[in-house]
């Protein structure tokens, strides 16, 4: 005989189910509004900048000419020197920050214990919170005379100064992210390796660092992004003069600093005003790609 089917009594839409759906909608709203803000900023910057790109920009001049003379009678808008300024300062900053931050992340996560570890973590987080204008101040009043004395150069506000200041500034953030990456390596890996009789450094170098490789790379890239967008400290420490740098002792001017210094003095809607927004687009695109790369590395499928 064929049995009659069971009557189902469990499948009811209860309060928890409705709450779940409501929260899902609410959270979706939160997520989507973040996207809307980003797109809004994007549109605003591009609207102002695109006018210049279409009407006035000479691409060869923009990327090839070091002369940024927006206020001269025959204005030229060459951003090469500004790009080179930002690139050289950021490059030096990365060179300064990476050894410091990876080193201290390894020390905090792998070698220090107990109180020392806690104390250092708090200290690093405190360092990360120092306002950039304070770093600029240090560059202006401490690094400047130091560089003049040490290297016997006429002016201490240059690539070296800004790069080091920016590096020190980015290091705490890089350290925090790198330390998170090291902490995310499961302790079983360390135990398994130490059970083989490997020394602390061998464990760190052969097991922990390879396992945390992706996290460390993204820490560096996020630090680069941070340095790239930094304005105030660079403005104060770099000398703010338009140069294609040939040595670390040349003063330079950064993209960000240019926007900050000039935007207030331009007429809204003027050619100069729009040119500054074009610089903004450039910054936007580069930081976007840096963050995207960091993201791809973290999710990276290629090697594991």
């Amino acid at each position: 005989m064929t049995p009659k089917p069971l009557k189902n009594t469990s499948d009811t839409l209860d309060f928890a189910w409705y709450l779940d759906k409501a929260v899902e909608k609410l959270v979706f709203l939160g997520g989507i509004s973040g996207i809307i803000f980003i797109v809004g900023i994007f549109i605003f910057v591009f609207k102002e900048g695109l006018g210049f790109i279409i009407a006035n920009m000479d691409i060869a001049e923009f990327f090839g000419n070091p002369a940024w003379r927006p206020t001269s009678d025959e204005p030229t808008y060459g951003a090469l020197a500004l790009i080179a300024g930002t690139a050289s300062v950021t490059g030096l900053a990365v060179l300064t920050a990476v050894p410091f931050s990876i080193g201290s992340a390894i020390y905090i996560s792998e070698f220090s214990t107990g109180r020392t570890q806690e104390f250092l973590k708090i200290l690093i987080e405190l360092l990360a919170a120092i306002p950039s204008v304070v770093w600029g101040f240090i560059g202006l009043s401490i690094m400047n005379p130091l560089i003049i004395d040490l290297f016997n150069v006429p002016i201490g506000l240059n690539v070296l100064n800004a790069g080091v200041i920016l590096g020190l500034m980015a290091a705490p953030i890089m350290t925090t992210i790198a330390e998170d990456a090291l902490k995310a390596v499961p302790d079983q890996y360390r135990e398994a390796a130490e059970a083989l009789g490997a020394t602390k450094w061998q464990v760190t170098f052969n097991v922990v660092l390879p396992a945390a490789k992706k996290g460390l790379m993204s820490a560096v890239l996020l630090g680069v992004g941070r340095g790239f967008g930094e304005t105030m400290a660079v403005l104060m420490a770099s000398g703010h003069s338009i140069h294609l740098p040939t040595s670390p002792f040349d003063s330079v001017r950064a993209l960000t600093a240019t926007i900050a210094a000039e935007l207030g003095e331009t007429a809204i809607g003027s050619e100069h005003y729009r040119a500054l927004f074009t610089l903004g687009i450039l910054l936007f695109i580069v930081t976007f790609f840096i963050n995207l790369t960091a993201d791809i590395i973290v999710r990276g499928k290629g090697d594991r």
Binding site: N8, S10, D11, T12, D14, A16, D20
Partner: peptide, 20 residues
Amino acid sequence: VVFDGKNIMEWRNLYALRRS
């Protein structure tokens, strides 16, 4: 797959299915 008299794809409340 029919559980408790109802195809598991037709349960409206997935969480109620998991609870049982």
